[in-house]
């Protein structure tokens, strides 16, 4: 009962925050994200240019820059102030399209490592650069959707673990889990994702398991050009799946 009360209070606070932000003409904080149900199949939704996506009005989600985490961090400006989010449901899966402006495409194709052991080869694959970081994005949601408590925005907490669907422009998609800041770990599993960069904009589609109404979702964007990695990134506050 107490948990339900807390949830109601939290939603009311979020809604009043939206109203206040809208009144001030600023991008809203927490928003309800509606999910389209196009008749298109799942394969079509993995294409950025699919007609079904163009028919969905994006939600404009404000991004925040994490404050400097370490004394030695170089300062970084708010180069990516927002991300546009579109959601669609098909074949029992939830498809998320994230679109954001980024002046530089920080991505590369790493040399494929042959299957043969390195000691049997004349040539080894070399490290081409040691100081580059790549563009990336992620969607975070509670590992146990449907529970009343919203996890901590800092990678969940001990009672409320989170799942993180992370995509890196060079290294691809990887599923992560966390129970609080510093606990994020790769599960070794991947998922379907498709990212394209065109005319200064990233369009990324992630295929997630279906999530129930009311599930909180948070978004993050890493800008390789700003040496983003780890908690050095852009993040949204929790949004709510409608």
């Amino acid at each position: 009962m107490r948990i339900r009360l807390l949830l109601i209070i939290s939603v009311c606070l979020q809604l009043s925050g939206i109203a206040r932000a809208q009144a001030q003409g600023k991008p809203a904080g927490p928003q309800f994200l509606s999910v389209a149900a196009p008749s298109t199949g799942a394969d079509e939704l993995l294409k950025v240019g699919a007609k079904a996506w163009s028919q969905i009005t994006p939600k404009h989600i404000a991004l925040n820059r994490t404050p400097p985490l370490y004394d030695t961090d170089e300062p970084a400006g708010l180069d990516i102030p927002s991300v546009d989010v579109r959601l669609a449901r098909a074949s029992g899966r939830l498809f998320v399209q994230l679109s954001w402006r980024d002046a530089t495409q920080d991505a590369t194709t790493l040399t494929e490592v042959p299957n043969t052991p390195p000691e049997t080869r004349f040539r080894k694959v070399q490290t081409e650069a040691d100081d580059r970081f790549f563009d990336a994005a992620a969607v975070m949601f509670p590992a146990k959707p449907g529970t009343a408590m919203t996890p901590s925005l800092q990678m969940g907490d001990a009672e409320n673990p989170v799942e993180i669907y992370y995509w890196n422009a060079t290294r691809g998609a990887m599923l992560m889990q966390a129970q609080g800041r510093g606990t994020t770990r790769r599960t070794g599993q991947s998922f379907t994702a498709s990212g394209t960069y065109q005319s200064g904009q990233w369009n990324l589609i992630l295929e997630l398991p279906d999530l129930p109404t009311g599930t909180p979702l948070a978004f993050a964007v890493w800008n390789g050009g700003q040496k983003d990695r780890d908690g050095r990134k852009y993040f949204s506050v929790w949004q709510v799946l409608e």
Binding site: L110, V113, R171
Partner: peptide, 23 residues
Amino acid sequence: CQGYRYCIKACPYKKIYFNEVTG
């Protein structure tokens, strides 16, 4: 290790190296 490279910056002797193949 996730290849964040804060360690390389912090080491005053620069004796840590990043392997881009393994990340």
